[in-house]
Amino acid sequence: MPLIKDGHFVADDWSRPVEGEPAVAGAKLILAFARLEAEASDLIEAGHAVGVEITNDTDPAALEPWFDRLALIVVPFPRAADGRGFSIATRLRRLGYRGELRASGHLIADQYTLARSCGFDTVEISDAQAARQPEPHWLEAEHAMSLAYQRGYGPLRNILGARWAAQ
C-alpha cells in the first residue's frame, strides 16, 4: 500500500507479521493491539522496532505505558468521512507520544493537512486510491491552506499568533 510522507510517495519499511510465523531478522513490525502485551517485549529484545495498529475505539490512554517502546502507532480510517482518528491522534500527541503516527485506510488528499495538524506523520492508502489521487495531488493539498485559527495543532501558520505579532 502506498505511503505518503511530506507530500511524497515513499517506500514503507514496516510490515505486518502473520501470527505464528517467525519474523525476518531486523524487520520493523506492526502488531495488532491485542498482540502487544504477549509479543512486543520479546521482539524488542530481539532487536526489532515495534509498532502497533489500534482500532478506532481504542482508548489512547491504554497505549501510554508503551509510548517509550513503540516506534509507530497506526490509526485506521475505515472511511474518509469517519473522523475519529483525528481525535485519537490529538489525544496521543497530547499524552506525550513522540514516535511516528500513521493514518491508514481511506483518507483523501484534501484531508492531508488536517491529518498532519492533528499529529500524523504518514498516510497509508490503497493502490486504487493512489491511482486516482497520485503524488502531485498530495503535494498540492499540502499547500492549499497556509493558515489555521486553532492553536495547539500543527503545522500551519497560526492566525492568532500572526495577528498578535502584527500588532
Binding site: 474518509a80 468521512a81 473522523g83 483525528f86 488536517l114 485559527y149
Partner: peptide, 13 residues
Amino acid sequence: RQWSSNHPEFSFL
C-alpha cells in the same frame, strides 16, 4: 466561528 473554521480535528464528525 473562527475556532470552528476548518478545524483539523472536528471537520469529520
